[in-house]
Amino acid sequence: MNTAPATSAHGYRRWSGQLSRRRWTWLAIFVAGVRLTNRATKVRGLVWMSFMFAVGSCALFYMLARLEILAGSDEASDMYGLINMFLHVDLSGVKQLADFREVLWRSVFLFMFKGELFWVFVVIMRAGPGLIADDLKARALPIYFARPVTPLTYMMGKWMVVAFFIGMVVLVPNLLALIFGTLTTGGLQTFGQTLALAGDLLITGGGVVVFGGAVVLALSSLSSDKRYVMVGWVAFCLLPVMAQAVLFKVLPDETTSGWLGSVSLYRDITVTADWVFGIRAAWESTPLPREVFDRALGRQSTLVYPAVVLLTFTIGSLLICYCRVVRFSRSAANA
């Protein structure tokens, strides 16, 4: 395969080598997008700060490892209090904590994941709105679509940019924490116990990447002013949470177990994450008395409604974004 351009006497070298397949053009869009977004100090700062979640998880793993050794001693009493505060489980009467390592780690990751969701919201707010809106504002679409870039590869490239930043918040810190915890707690035995957690972390993190990326891309394709997109994103995330809080306050529990319980997207994601991590089943399968972990389980919800809501929004957003991008690509010359 010849990849070297043929040189001419006058300096212009017409390309005679092989070009990448056009389905890989998203990679160029992705790399350029990440570089451009990463130039913003605030985005870089937010991404770096998201590693506090990894630090938090590691601190909890460390505490749990210490408790495995110090269980029942006076030294452990302060740590029981801290664990109870963060994970809502009372381990003070539990011997042989190592037997419950997996379920405890699941609780740690779920606790961190819920915090990371807020961070994802903030990072998307900074990194996502300009993805397509800036191209619309710069009227850059004619030069994208004057190349072998299809609407799908363009969308893929843009989505990968936001996916990269979401992944840096919700995937990388958790996986790092898992590696740290495994290495510092029991080695190979722990690795076997917690291996499934890596898969669960990838699924939940991947879900957030797909959902958040799709929604912000759709919003970004709707306006050429990223400030409006930002406002749209904030409203999209916060208004349902506020509505849900009011509903939970005024309605009895039974009425909020169906559709009414799925108004808040934040709650939908956490309910789905609970299901992926199997936290309820994991605790209930332990021989521990219910009062040890009851607070950690929270309000019981069915998965169907949250899953349907999230899927609908994801597919709807992707469709909106795709239709918009196709429209842009077919009228780029008049943009």
Binding site: T25, A28, V31, A32, L36, D134, R139
Partner: peptide, 27 residues
């Protein structure tokens, strides 16, 4: 293709701009 209007991302340097679009063309 060289369109008539401005089609730039102002934060990008000239080199990054040209390199990125060469990559997007499949090089």
């Amino acid at each position: 293709y060289c369109p008539e209007g401005d089609v730039f991302w102002p934060e990008m340097t000239g080199q990054q701009f040209v390199y990125f679009l060469a990559r997007a063309s499949g090089l």
